[in-house]
């Protein structure tokens, strides 16, 4: 069905389109300007590129890295650890949240512990984790899970508890039991909240894994960062950060796509 719009409306649409294009243009312009400025100050000697690196050096490093090939294994390791931490903490956190929701007395008992765990800086547990899990992948994933899981549990639980009381009454008046209320109402109603939690978790999982790699590892992007920082190879440090930005962006993008699909299915 093709709609016929008035002239005014066409004008309006054109203006909207123009605005969108303009915003994208300005975004790119900003990036180009910043990179240009950075390149200029490094090239002209205003700052020492040994300390600040520069876009062209980063580009060259990227080319060498990817033609060398060992970077792929570092990316692979970090990505694997991040995904593992992300998936495990989401599933486990969701499971704990469901248990607490189904047994509210338990929730009341555990509430203060959750609050303390949530405000505790998890890095503080680093030494313990290394002792318990040893140096390596296990400890790093554990760090990632530790950072994600508490906030996952709390956010999901809050989402469950925010479900409208009257809808619960409706199901009860139909004779529904607790499990039916959970599956017919609470879980589907919490789907948007669940996706919001996923979005937060992606970021958190990266933080946890990179932190874990700082503490204990011989490979991965976090390891590259610490190692090259120690030997003052700032080109490598910057390049690794660029790779991290891209990876985190891609993962966030994937979840945004998931969110879009879910919303589309729900409200057509």
């Amino acid at each position: 069905m093709k709609k016929i719009y008035s002239l005014d409306h066409k004008k309006y649409l054109r203006k909207q389109l123009f605005n969108t294009v303009l915003i994208h243009f300005l975004r790119i312009l900003l990036l180009v300007l910043l990179l240009g400025l950075w390149e200029y100050v490094a090239w002209s000697g205003l700052v020492d590129p040994f300390i600040t690196s520069s876009p062209s050096r980063i580009f060259n490093t990227l080319v060498t890295l990817f033609s060398g090939g060992s970077i792929w294994s570092d990316i692979g390791i970090t990505l694997y650890e991040t995904m593992l931490a992300f998936v495990i903490s989401t599933i486990l956190g969701g499971f704990i949240a469901i248990c607490l929701y189904m047994c509210l007395p338990l929730k009341r008992i555990l509430e203060p512990y959750l609050v303390i765990l949530n405000s505790l800086p998890k890095v503080a547990l680093g030494p313990l984790i290394i002792i318990w899990f040893g140096v390596g992948t296990k400890a790093i994933v554990a760090m990632g899970i530790l950072i994600c899981i508490v906030i996952t549990t709390i956010s999901m639980l809050n989402g469950f508890c925010a479900v409208e009381e009257e809808k619960i009454m409706l199901l009860k008046s139909m004779g529904a039991n607790k499990l039916q209320i959970l599956f017919k109402l609470v879980l589907p109603a919490s789907l948007p909240n669940f996706i919001a939690v996923l979005k937060i978790n992606v970021g958190m999982a990266w933080v946890g894994v990179i932190m874990g790699e700082y503490l204990s590892s011989g490979a991965g992007l976090g390891y590259l960062l610490v190692y090259n920082g120690q030997v003052f190879n700032l080109d490598m440090v910057m390049t690794t950060i660029v790779i991290l930005c891209v990876l985190a962006g891609i993962m966030y993008g994937l979840i945004a796509i998931l969110e879009y699909c879910v919303n589309k299915k729900r409200n057509k």
Partner: peptide, 19 residues
């Protein structure tokens, strides 16, 4: 003693499930 299908309850708001 407990809700039964003999009685149907309609609330102030429609409470339709959006999904």
């Amino acid at each position: 003693t407990k809700p039964s299908p003999k009685v149907g309850y309609m609330f102030q708001r429609d409470n339709l499930f959006e999904w």
